[in-house]
Design a protein around this nucleic acid. Structure first.
Length: 731
DNA sequence: AGCACGCCGACT
DNA sequence: GTCGGCGTGCTC
């Protein structure tokens, strides 16, 4: 046996630690190992190893506890981890935290048994404490669980271990777990799923087109009108992948909303579907993690974090609803699962398939550039036409319903169909201002207006950012006035109004206030499916994936003023929203109908966006972005400081000086810099905020630039500074 | 990165 | 006299 020294990266220590291991062969980088740190043991990753020759200094390093099989953290995950470090400029330790593998406990039972030395010591009755004697005598009878021995003997056990009086035994026993026996299915059984979906000609052509790409790495995209049956096409592709003995990964933006989709899949593919979501308990998670490493020919479904699971033999990665912003994580590490999916597909030499009715402009450009191979479904499945869209002009943004709107709802009620009413904001009144001077009531911690909610029949002022609440009317900060005017409408108010107008209708609301638990959501979704709900009011949450047969009407009482978010993606978001929301209507029958109420200045753009094709929209949007040097024509990085005013200002100033220095090194490299300035929302959670945005023509230049910049600039207090590569939110 | 240790200011 | 702030230093 040779001895090796391993450099190990742990998810909780920002420094590599070295350990010894005895092994016949060299240890590969990327191996998952269990190592001791202080008195505990942690999982880490081997970054490098070298053979140790000589005997000196042995006592300085500890030994690796155990080395995991490759499947628990395969090479593709190691590459993904390296990619995240480089692309997002984060420390190795924080990047590792993204991977559930490091929170995994092997389901094997760790046992303790007495060693030869221990037996000898016991037989000879050498001097030892009573505790130690008890321990050794107990273990001399049989093995015991590590956890039991640890809790009973603590320090004595540690001493016994260090003196090698006891040995640890571990056995991985997952394959024999009775509950998991049925998880191993033969590939030939899968063929019976092949003909479960009946595709129309167009879908079949799409399927055949993509089938040709299954054996290699490629970026694919399935674009199609809402209700064109994109799901059926990719399900059939999944079956193809399973037939090859490989796994399929399916990413969804919101797994909790997709319960009935998941139920459908489970019914259709019994024993083949595995769902990963944040609601899973610790032990369930752990069990799943242990099991999935052994599986092939399975379908794994989950939100963006699915991309980090130790799934082996991946044959396809599908990103459904590609346009969704949910794929970008907006705290901790600001990764984009769409980018990571692309990377992971490359490491697995398999395709990644983006699916959307309205692909992000970024993807759209790459389709036009020929980087992504796309197939377009133009017809609605079952020949149902797209809903008829009616735009009703109104003189203000908010308020209630036009005759048209109410009549449509009446019709829905009479026909015993269902309606969705989309409201952009939650709460009762989004704004309250002083009746005398007009000053908005704002949160004391944040630079945003307080909204009025009704909680248990009582009026409550709530801040949507920090959650700060108060119940009594405030005093105007500007003029000390006591009279307030509330205006606008949120989902709660719209719900109440509808209940008043339609006393015998069942009006239900879905937003983060009314539905805050998984079980509640499930109950509401079931009620919709069972036809118990007539009108469903909801915020953004209802725009994706709610496909219910009886929904034939979608109403939008008002849309927010277009100018409220000064952001180059506003048009993209509006377009996607309109297509997604209106697409909920009439998916399974004729005569779908949509009524959108809008202010006069909104009408032209809404009219345009509800009639224009995705491709025409894309071309127009690309033109605008090109002129403005916006993504996808540039690559962005944003820096933001969050903290006390003086601290933030000082740091931003320091940054500015360093930025200038680095910029000089990169002259004439197509870089556009926005020097640090205050954010449009000056304060959040009691912290002042500043930002700086840099745009690069070239992705590699961005990388080089950042490398130098971040080497020279590091804030005193790391907590106040964030780097956001490819930001989606700028406020 | 987290956690422990340690050295100084505002409280019973 | 104590609680608690966050500066420094360590983990193989």
């Amino acid at each position: 046996m040779k001895k090796y020294i391993l450099d190990v990266q742990l998810p909780n220590i920002n420094k590599r630690l070295s350990y010894y291991i005895k092994s016949e062969r060299d240890i590969e980088s990327g191996s998952l190992v269990d190592v001791p740190v202080s008195e505990k043991s942690y999982l880490g990753i081997v970054e490098s190893s070298k053979e140790f020759i000589g005997q000196e200094n042995l006592s300085e390093l500890k030994f690796v506890n155990s080395i995991y099989e490759k499947k628990f953290f395969n090479d593709d995950l190691y590459k993904l981890y390296k990619f995240i470090c480089e692309y997002y400029f984060v420390t190795p330790s924080s990047a590792l935290k993204l991977f559930p593998s490091f929170n995994m406990k092997l389901l094997s039972k760790n046992k303790v048994k007495i060693s030869k030395k221990g037996q000898e010591v016991l037989e000879c009755s050498l001097l030892f404490s009573d505790n130690l004697k008890d321990l050794l005598e107990q273990l001399n009878r049989r093995e015991y669980d590590l956890s039991y021995i640890k809790s009973k003997y603590k320090d004595t056990f540690r001493y016994a271990l260090s003196e090698r009086l006891v040995d640890m035994v571990s056995e991985t026993n997952i394959r024999n777990d009775k509950a998991n026996l049925d998880l191993y299915k033969k590939a030939d059984e899968i063929e019976k799923y092949e003909n479960l979906s009946i595709l129309n000609d167009e879908q079949d052509r799409a399927f055949k087109y993509f089938k040709g790409y299954l054996n290699r790495n490629s970026e694919l995209s399935l674009v199609g009108t809402t209700g064109s049956g994109k799901t059926e096409v990719y399900l059939k592709l999944i079956v193809e992948v399973l037939k090859k003995g490989k796994n399929a990964m399916l990413l969804l933006p919101e797994i909790t909303l997709a319960t009935h989709f998941v139920d459908m899949l489970e019914k259709r593919f019994p024993n083949l579907v595995y769902v990963w979501h944040s609601q899973l308990g610790k032990s369930e998670r752990n069990k799943l993690l242990n099991i999935i490493t052994n599986l092939t020919e399975k379908i794994f479904i989950g939100p963006r974090s699915l991309i980090f699971l130790p799934i082996n033999d991946i044959g396809i990665i599908i990103v459904d609803e590609e346009q969704s912003e949910n794929y970008k994580q907006d705290d901790f590490i600001r990764y984009d699962a769409r980018i990571l999916a692309r990377e992971r597909a490359r490491y697995n030499n398999c395709p990644v398939l983006y699916v959307s009715a309205t692909p992000s402009v970024d993807l759209g450009k790459r389709i036009l550039d020929g980087e992504v191979f796309s197939y377009y479904l133009s017809k609605r499945f079952g020949e149902f036409s797209l809903p008829k869209i009616n735009i009703v002009k109104r003189n203000n943004f908010y308020g209630s319903f036009s005759e048209e709107f109410i009549n449509s709802l009446k019709e829905v009620k009479e026909k015993k169909e269902q309606a969705i009413i989309f409201v952009p904001r939650r709460g009762f009144y989004p704004f309250v201002s002083c009746a005398d001077c007009g000053e908005l009531v704002k949160c004391k911690n944040c630079d945003v207006p307080m909204c009025v909610h009704v909680i248990k029949g009582k009026r409550v002022y709530v801040c949507h950012h920090c959650g700060y609440k108060f119940t009594t009317d405030p005093v105007c900060k500007k003029c000390s006035g006591l009279n307030f005017k509330q205006y606008g409408a949120g989902s709660q108010k719209i719900t109440e109004e509808l209940k008043n107008i339609f006393p015998d209708a069942n009006v239900e609301r879905i937003d983060s206030d009314s539905v805050n638990t998984y079980s509640k959501l499930k109950a509401v979704l079931k009620d919709i499916l069972d036809g118990k709900i007539d009108f469903l009011v909801g915020t953004q949450i209802i725009t994706k994936g709610l496909n219910f047969p009886k929904i034939n009407f979608v109403g939008i009482p008002f849309l927010e003023p277009l100018t409220s978010i000064p952001d180059f993606r506003s048009f993209e978001k509006l377009y996607q929203l309109l297509v997604q929301v209106t697409g909920r209507a009439g998916r399974y029958s004729m005569g779908g109908k949509v009524v959108i109420q809008a202010s006069e200045d909104q009408v032209p753009i809404i009219r345009k966006y509800t009639t224009i094709s995705y491709w025409d929209f894309l071309l127009e949007e690309l033109e605008l972005r090109k002129d403005m040097f916006c993504p996808p024509f540039s690559y962005e990085v944003m820096f933001r400081w969050n903290g006390k005013l003086t601290e933030v200002k000082d740091e931003a100033k320091k940054f500015r000086e360093i930025l200038k220095e680095v910029y000089v090194l990169f002259e004439n490299r197509d870089i556009k810099v926005t020097a640090p300035k205050f954010c449009p929302i000056l304060r959040l959670h009691g912290n002042y905020r500043m930002y700086s945005l840099i745009r690069f023509k070239d992705k590699d230049v961005r990388k080089d630039f950042l490398e130098i910049l971040l080497k020279r600039y590091s804030p005193k207090n790391k907590k106040i500074f964030i780097v956001d590569v490819d930001p989606l939110y700028y406020f």
